[in-house]
Write a protein that binds this DNA or RNA. Structure first.
Lengths: 186, 186
DNA sequence: ATTTAAAATTAACAAATGTTAATTAAGAAA
DNA sequence: TTTCTTAATTAACATTTGTTAATTTTAAAT
């Protein structure tokens, strides 16, 4: 399975662990716009995008805000819920027709006890997410919206497949501001 | 040791593991303003604040920007370096006279191999940091500077011990803007 | 205590981003 | 295609935040 070789590239686990882990992995397909996890739910599934694009979003003052985009091989979890067990005001939605690998979190965490190396693999995977959060923090803390947009253009393929309203809220600005920035650039 | 009971409250490890871990823990004192880790270095130490206040900071366009504050029992690491091995443009500085527990990261990671439960303990500790990063992201993405300041006031004791210029950059605004916000509040 | 340097405030003006509303463009459904 | 709905753009004006510089306050050093 493609996912297992991706995992291998992060940290190689024993064949036995690999066997146990692969039995937890299922595939799910979602069509464009479809909700993968409802707002307000608990995060009890670790998703990894196989193909397509998904986003984490929430509502604030009636606005729809995108917190995160995920592309191929990206994890997509609502960590503030997965790690605490608390419900989260955030949901997950497919932006394109999207296939994800899904791993039940309770079963996964149970496997951690039996296989030290599975816990390590996922520790390393989540550490990458952690670093991503920090990078994003840096850009939101002290870059102008225009610079954040230019960085996003530079670093993110598939960007043209994402509705601009989602990009705007991801950047922390209104859609109108993003339009203005785009017109300044050209 | 106080630190070990704090660790116990997060995840209880075996006495043997506890023994091994405690042999790695040293204490260091830093006086106000003193640099704990230089900008540009690699993060090879996990610090936990015993008492006092420390910050993670970096320079951007000649400005000093505070990315993070740490108080008693808070971890303070430059995760983007600790988890990747790369140098980081960030440094660590004591804001008050500060005592930290220091754990050498290389030795710690070596212990992970021998003690599954030590790896788990630190996984859980770093997960908390990860969740903190996400919370901070939310506030920077779509709250006004005034709301961010009010939240900080509400949630953070000792805030009055931190120079306003550090608070301003932490909030992603200039010191002048923070002064303006403070005068509006009263 | 006095002096000195650094931090915080204030004010005036500039730039960036938000808000509302109208218009155009794009995409989905029939 | 044609129609209809949603997304994106544009414009005008409001608000927030930035910039510079002067002033006051606070804290450090002597």
């Amino acid at each position: 399975m493609e996912l297992l070789s991706f995992f291998d590239s992060v940290y190689k686990i024993t064949p036995r662990a690999r066997e146990s882990l692969s039995s937890l992995i299922t595939e799910k397909e979602y069509s464009k716009i479809e909700i993968i996890q409802q707002i307000g739910s608990r995060c009890r599934t670790v998703y990894i995008v196989k193909r397509g694009i998904a986003r984490i979003f929430y509502h604030k003052d009636g606005l729809d805000i995108t917190e995160h985009f995920a592309f191929s091989n990206d994890l997509i979890v609502r960590a503030e819920s997965l790690f605490t067990g608390e419900p989260t005001p955030k949901g997950i939605q497919a932006i394109e027709n999207t296939t994800v690998y899904a791993i039940d979190a309770v079963s996964l965490f149970a496997l951690y006890d039996q296989h030290h190396d599975i816990e390590r693999l996922f520790r390393l995977l989540f550490e990458r997410e952690h670093v991503n959060s920090i990078k994003r923090l840096e850009s939101l803390q002290f870059q102008s919206a225009k610079d954040r947009y230019l960085d996003l253009l530079k670093n993110t393929d598939y960007i043209q497949k994402i509705p601009l309203k989602h990009i705007a809220s991801y950047l922390g600005i209104t859609q109108v501001s993003l339009s203005r920035i785009r017109s300044e650039i050209r």
